[in-house]
Simulated assay, not measured.
Amino acid sequence: MRFDILTILPELLEGPFNVSMMKRAQDRGLLEIHIHNIRDYSTDKHKNVDDYQYGGGAGMVMAIQPIVTLIEKLKAERNYDEIIYMTPDGELLEQRHSNAWSLKENILILCGHYKGVDERIREHYITKEISIGSYVLTGGELAAAVVVDSIGRLIPGVMNDETSALTDSFQDDLLSPPVYTRPPEFNGWKVPDVLLSGDFGKIELWREQQAIERTQTRRPDLYKKFIGEE
């Protein structure tokens, strides 16, 4: 699977993809991540990538020319299953997005900045607009890293135990149940007896009940989806 990320701050993306699971996935040839500096494609003599917005108002806008030039260059080299724009007013990223995109081959991600990109880019190139939460960051790079991580970990072979992803939070519109490890007692705090029983039927039932209760308490919005009220 290949990701092409378009940014004006490539340095922000060097760290997240050079450690842990994402690095191992790249080293094993399961994942390619290519970071492109939009500024390199500006025809402006000062390599500017922003300009004042028509109609006045505070804040600059990402210029159309360098972004279009770069997107067209990449599209000429391969077909993209999705061209994603990271923006606060996009659709909220959910596990279902990551699940679906993990089956794709080529994804392009545009990182927003300033007041956003020229609207004509969104109209003519973007196939999906995504936000990672109801807040504003200084740019789309950290959000793009979240998207790539959430997708990349699901690619077959990336995780040591692929079945682990099936029990992650949100996979069934439920949060994950509590988890414990050794020792069975610490500072007088005990692991639930059922987890030490060796009865896997009872353990799975306990985990399911805990997941439902935790979701109902902590994420009532998600619980409504689980019981079919949304």
Rank of each mutant, 00 (worst) to 15 (best):
E123H: 14
Y180E: 12
P178M: 02
F186D: 03
S164E: 07
T163A: 07
G228V: 04
R182Y: 07
K47L: 01
A63M: 15
T163M: 09
T69R: 11
Q95Y: 15
Y125N: 08
L6K: 02
N99Y: 13
K45F: 02
L31M: 04
F186H: 11
L205A: 14
M21S: 00
Y135N: 01
G59F: 12
L70P: 04
K115M: 14
L103C: 09
L205R: 11
K45G: 00
I130Y: 05
N48G: 13
A211L: 03
I33R: 03
I121D: 12
L12I: 13
T87N: 12
V117T: 08
L174T: 15
Y125Q: 09
S197G: 13
L154W: 06
K115H: 15
L222F: 04
L31K: 03
E32D: 12
P16V: 03
S169H: 13
G55W: 09
I121G: 10
L92T: 09
E123V: 12
Q216K: 15
C111D: 09
F17H: 05
D89G: 05
D27Y: 00
I130T: 05
E229S: 03
I5F: 02
P88C: 01
Q53E: 11
S197P: 02
T217R: 10
T217K: 10
E141I: 11
T7C: 04
E91D: 12
L205C: 10
V136I: 15
G112A: 05
P16H: 01
V179H: 15
S98D: 08
E123Q: 15
Y52P: 00
L175W: 06
S131C: 07
L142C: 02
G116T: 05
T7Q: 03
W189P: 00
I8E: 00
V19C: 00
I35S: 03
L30S: 02
I38Q: 01
A63E: 10
E141M: 06
M21V: 14
A25V: 07
R96Q: 15
A63T: 13
M21W: 02
V49L: 01
Q216N: 10
I126L: 11
Q171P: 09
E208G: 07
L30E: 01
Y125H: 09
Q53T: 05
M21Q: 07
R2F: 03
I212L: 07
L175V: 12
Q171S: 13
P177M: 03
V148I: 13
H124V: 11
